[in-house]
Computed example of a mutant assay.
Amino acid sequence: MRTDAPKTAVLFDIDGTLMDFHGAGRKSFVQALEKVFGWRDDIAYIQFHGNTDLNVLREIFTRHGAELTPTKQREFFMALAVELEQLAAGATSTRHPGVAELLQVLAADQRVALGIVTGNIESTAHIKLRHAGLRHHFRHGGYADEHADRADIARQALARLRAALPPGTEFFAIWMVGDTAHDIAAAHAIGARCLAVATGRFSVADLCAAGADAVLENLADTSAVLRLLGLR
């Protein structure tokens, strides 16, 4: 098969879509806030589902009436990765049904270009994927180190995916796979379609109402997912 043949780009969200880290992400935020800024804050007012790490950090600084400078942002994100790495040693992660099997099939398909679109910063995204045994499937992605808006993260992921492909390669189709209305909106913002899965906090009905192009309970039926993506 020609390496510059049209590809189907499939961009996956992490939390709630591929896996669940059972609160380790929130806990790492709490611990890093105290370590870097001395703030003892349980951040119960923060909604993480569909959010981005940079936006969360901005919300916290607004709540504390403090100015978030580039230096403080950089220091916090470095500490966040350290805290999550330490928590990961004793944490349990759960891959959602069918994820490992689906990624194995997609990664072996030369028609497919895989990527990540996540609200995590890059270092913590890699920690989570590695913990779940999925890191090796993803070489490119968009992350929240510099972008607070998920649509901008999706644009970054798509640009990096394009840059990694042979010159002249076109995308036959672009799909994002996610579990929140934010994933759906980000997909549509970059001209992609969204396959939404009800493995997070939102139901099939919620995701349909949010405008998903296709909705499944989970990714357990590999053949059904491939048909939806136009790969079978």
Rank of each mutant, 00 (worst) to 15 (best):
F138C: 01
F172I: 08
H131R: 10
R139E: 15
A132I: 10
R155W: 07
D179W: 06
P167N: 09
K128L: 04
L134V: 03
V177R: 01
F138K: 00
K128A: 04
L158G: 12
L161K: 15
G142E: 08
I127T: 02
A125R: 00
H131L: 12
R160Y: 06
K128D: 04
Y143Q: 01
H131T: 15
A164S: 15
D145Q: 02
Q156K: 12
H136T: 05
H126G: 04
R135D: 09
G178A: 00
G178K: 02
I127K: 00
P166I: 00
D152G: 11
F171R: 08
K128V: 03
H131C: 15
D145F: 02
R135V: 14
H147C: 02
R130W: 10
L134D: 07
I174L: 13
R139K: 15
A148M: 09
A159D: 13
A151P: 14
E146Q: 12
A154H: 14
E170Y: 00
P166S: 03
R139F: 14
A164M: 09
A181G: 13
T169H: 07
P166E: 03
A125S: 09
G168N: 01
R139G: 15
K128Q: 07
P167H: 08
G133M: 06
H131G: 15
P167Y: 05
I153Q: 01
M176N: 10
A148K: 13
A144Q: 08
A159K: 12
R139C: 12
D149R: 13
G168A: 02
F138V: 01
F171A: 07
L158S: 10
K128Y: 03
Q156P: 10
H140P: 10
L165N: 06
D152W: 09
I127R: 00
D145E: 02
T169K: 08
A144M: 11
Y143V: 04
Y143I: 01
P166G: 05
G178M: 03
A159N: 10
H126S: 09
H140Y: 12
I127V: 01
A164N: 09
A181F: 11
A164Y: 09
M176A: 10
G142D: 05
G141L: 02
H136W: 04
D152S: 13
R135E: 15
A132D: 12
H182K: 15
A154G: 14
M176V: 14
H137Q: 10
I127P: 00
E170L: 07
L165P: 06
H137T: 15
R155Y: 09
P167G: 05
H147T: 05
R160L: 11
E170N: 00
G168V: 03
A163Y: 01
F138R: 00
D149E: 14
L165G: 07
G133L: 07
H131P: 12
R139N: 13
H136K: 05
R162F: 05
H182E: 11
R162E: 07
D179A: 05
G133P: 05
R135N: 14
H147G: 08
D145C: 00
W175M: 09
Y143G: 02
H140W: 15
A151L: 11
A148D: 15
G142C: 04
H136V: 02
H137S: 10
A164G: 08
A148F: 10
L165W: 04
G168K: 00
A144V: 09
